[in-house]
Simulated scan of single mutants.
Amino acid sequence: MNVKVLQHSMTVLLVFLLVFAVPFEAVQAAPPATLKLGSKGADVPDLQYRLKTLGYFSDDLTDYFGTKTLESLTRFQKDHGLEADGVAGEKTWTELKKVSVSQAELNMLARIIYAESRGEPYEGQVAVGAVVLNRVESSSFPDTIKGVIEQPRAFTAVDDGQYKLKPNETAYQAAMEAVRGIDPTNGALYYFNPETATSKWIWSRKQTLKIGRHVFAV
């Protein structure tokens, strides 16, 4: 696909996500409900949002499980080796949460990207998002985006308050790419600015590449 066309498509998707999304700021503690055609409730827009971030669902978010949601969910199930029954049960939710994010989680990811790497090359911003997600997958870190970002002393921008800044569209685009599996770091768990880093420990990590001012390491 032409790069300009791809960038335009991602921008259009982000407009849908940011403008037409039903507010869903709280990550739900209780397991999501089993959903099927005709279902209603707060878990439906979360399902739709997750499918939207992965490119399966293109309509506005609602609290009703209609035919468009059914078609989108069935395609997701087929692509991920699940029974394509159009029902969002335990196995489907488990797989979906492995490869997608909620609206609240995408906002968190965009905020940390903006706070930590605004002004860096776009690839470097995607890389910061990828590091967060790599930590979620690692047994050495918390297993949620919120847990990783809010881990004590993990990110300078959280400690100094920059994490509270409102992210721009580029940060959301970078977050979206990271969620969809783009990882310029090839699995890095750390990054630092060699010009400002004061920790001796971080220099002991195996460095893999440098993007902009950030060195990435495992």
Rank of each mutant, 00 (worst) to 15 (best):
A188P: 05
V101C: 13
L209S: 09
A21I: 01
V218H: 13
R118A: 10
L73G: 05
V158E: 05
G212N: 08
Y122G: 00
V132R: 06
E177L: 15
K78S: 10
Y163V: 02
A30L: 12
A26N: 06
E169M: 15
E90S: 03
I211K: 11
T11V: 12
D46G: 07
L54A: 00
G41K: 11
K68D: 11
Y191K: 08
G161R: 11
E83I: 15
E95A: 13
K40L: 02
A104R: 06
T67Y: 08
V87T: 14
K68L: 07
A127D: 08
G66A: 03
N193Q: 07
A127N: 09
A175F: 08
L54N: 02
E123Y: 05
P121L: 07
T11C: 02
L18A: 09
G55M: 05
V15I: 11
V158M: 03
L73A: 04
E123V: 13
L14P: 11
L17T: 05
T185E: 03
T69C: 05
T94K: 13
T94E: 14
D143K: 15
L133V: 06
V87P: 04
S204Q: 10
T92L: 00
L70H: 11
E71S: 13
T74C: 06
S138Y: 10
L54I: 10
Y191P: 07
T69S: 15
Y172S: 01
S39R: 05
Y49A: 07
N134V: 10
F16M: 14
P167E: 04
L165W: 08
V218E: 14
L18V: 00
E105A: 05
A42H: 09
P167I: 02
V218K: 15
Q207K: 15
R75I: 05
L209Y: 02
D183P: 09
N193R: 11
L82G: 12
A33H: 03
D159K: 12
